[in-house]
Amino acid sequence: MFEARLMNATILKKILDAVKDLLNEGTFDCSDSGIQLQAMDNSHVSLVSLTLRSDSFDKFRCDRNLSMGMNLGTMAKILKCANNDDTVTIKAQDNADTVTFMFESQNHEKVSDYEMKLMNLDQEHLGIPDTDYSCVVRMPSMEFARICRDLAQFSESMVICCTKEGVKFSASGDLGSANVKLAQTSNVDKEEEAVIIEMQEPVTLTFACRYLNAFTKATPLCNQVQLSMSADVPLVVEYRISDLGHIRYYLAPKIEE
């Protein structure tokens, strides 16, 4: 028996919004420790890794490890049927071929349940090595979203250059070129507005704007985003999900031919 309850549907709606542009389906691996989803986008350029810790759910029961393959488009449709302040309970029997989403209004007067067929997905699991990144940038997630949106107008790809002075985002194409430089915040009044750079070595990497823009769909989940970079390895774009866990996007760099 698997049962996981959150007092508020909003967070789950935001999580679905953050993955559904990249992934059509995904396997939710449920265990004692929580729920994990790892999946590559269709073109195998990026990887989404979602972790939700069991102890942060309002109720969590997982008697046996369970892998539930879900169509994320269908799941998003179902979650749209929940009001933001509804309690959500996800339920499945062991070895079941369906999962049930139950929504309960705050006054307990409306209860709805939606059953969804599970899918058998033959998805590859990738082993992600622990990496000490040369540069780790923390910045406001809204600012990152804005930069990705603005620079995508100029080119399909964006160069991110990080030094100890700051981080520079550049794009150039037929229309012209764009550069956005962010200096490290000297005086941190509000932590969520800060730009903080931890640098071992300067890094310059090129990434496809299309994927970066897809990652920024997670912006409503967290005020800050963390970018981790090292030469010749995938960029990690991480959004914390309050005390529930995190979503990490890995993006393979563009390399010189």
């Binding site: 195998h44 990026s46 031919e257």
Partner: peptide, 14 residues
């Protein structure tokens, strides 16, 4: 010209 690399080039297949 730069070329998009695939994510599987960087991570091991379990």
């Amino acid at each position: 010209k730069s070329k998009q690399s695939g994510i599987k080039n960087y991570f091991s297949t379990k």
